[in-house]
């Protein structure tokens, strides 16, 4: 076949180019623009090169908040993924019970973020909140506004409550997609429950789990509203995660250059980790 060479065809790419430009490139370039300048006011901007980046990378406050962020995201994944799979496995396969379970499980997903924060802020209070009160009644000293560990556990519990259903729903749909024949074959082959899970269900959940892990990682890494409403980042700065640090910097202190440089680094971290994770998984797939 003869290919016709005509460079005017490039015009056909223009709509996509414009779309991507307006949706991603231009906003991103604004941030890049801020990150290399020091702006005092309209018309008073000075080019500072990579100074902001150097400063951001050595900032102790940011480092602490980055470590907290990794700890939080790690804990979220370690709890929510197994728990979500477990919930999905326990849900009824079909019928009215199945539909009912589906709705019940999905409810937390429908609640707006700051409402979730408010719910838990009240729910976990020692004086008027059912949860906090009950824990205290059991003889445990629990106070999420004063104790670092309690604050962490409460934030984690809130996130688990809010987002495990997403993992569970994804896994549930993955489980429903496994043909009955596999279970029949496993029954014939006298496979134990564990073997069925390990060799049939888990491998077939892989693609939904990739999505679940990526979504949960990105979401938890960018968490802002819920801990902000629940603990306000405290006690001290013990539950101040990256987004909150960034917001304080950009809006509270109006430190636009530093905040922009930091935003870019933040963005690159999310991108890098997601990419690493995705290639690692798809690469493992190609072996043999």
């Amino acid at each position: 076949m003869n290919k016709i060479s005509d460079n005017r065809a490039w015009w056909l790419v223009l709509p996509v180019f414009l779309l991507v430009a307006f949706s991603a490139l231009i906003p991103l370039m604004t941030v890049v623009n801020y990150s290399v300048q020091d702006i005092f006011g309209p018309g008073q901007a000075y080019y500072v090169g990579t100074e902001w980046f150097k400063e951001v990378l050595t900032d102790q406050r940011l480092r602490d908040s980055l470590i907290r962020q990794f700890a939080f995201s790690g804990a979220v994944l370690a709890i929510q993924i197994p728990l979500g799979i477990g919930v999905a496995l326990m849900m009824p396969k079909s019928g009215v019970k199945g539909s009912l379970c589906l709705i019940l499980v999905a409810i937390p997903l429908l609640i707006p973020w700051n409402v979730v924060g408010t719910i838990w802020q009240i729910f976990a209070r020692g004086d008027i909140g059912l949860f906090g009160w009950a824990i205290n009644q059991m003889g445990m000293d629990y106070n999420y506004t004063g104790d670092t560990l309690d604050a962490w556990l409460t934030v984690l519990l809130m996130d688990v409550w809010h987002w495990t259903p997403l993992v569970a729903l994804l896994c549930y749909s993955g489980l429903r997609a496994i043909p009955e024949a596999f279970y029949q074959a496993a029954e014939i082959d006298r496979a134990s429950k564990w073997a069925v899970f390990r060799y049939i269900q888990l491998p077939r959940l892989k693609s939904v789990l990739i999505i679940a892990v990526l979504l949960r990682f990105m979401d938890s890494f960018m968490i802002y509203i819920e801990p902000f409403v629940l603990t306000g980042g405290g006690p001290g700065s013990s539950t101040t995660f990256l987004s909150q640090t960034l917001t304080t910097m950009a809006i509270g202190q109006f430190d636009l250059g530093r905040a922009a440089a930091f935003s870019l680094i933040y963005f690159l971290i999310v991108l890098l980790i997601s990419w690493l994770f995705f290639t690692a998984i798809t690469h493992a797939d190609k072996e043999k």
Partner: peptide, 30 residues
């Protein structure tokens, strides 16, 4: 499983995360 019976289905059912060897060994291992 309690009847100890083997059955081959119309369409192939294989455990796709395993190698051919592991597939064949699976009922024996169980």
């Amino acid at each position: 499983r309690d009847r100890n019976i083997a059955q081959v289905f119309q369409f192939p059912v294989i455990y796709d995360s395993m190698t051919v060897y592991e597939n064949l060994a699976f009922p024996l291992k169980n």
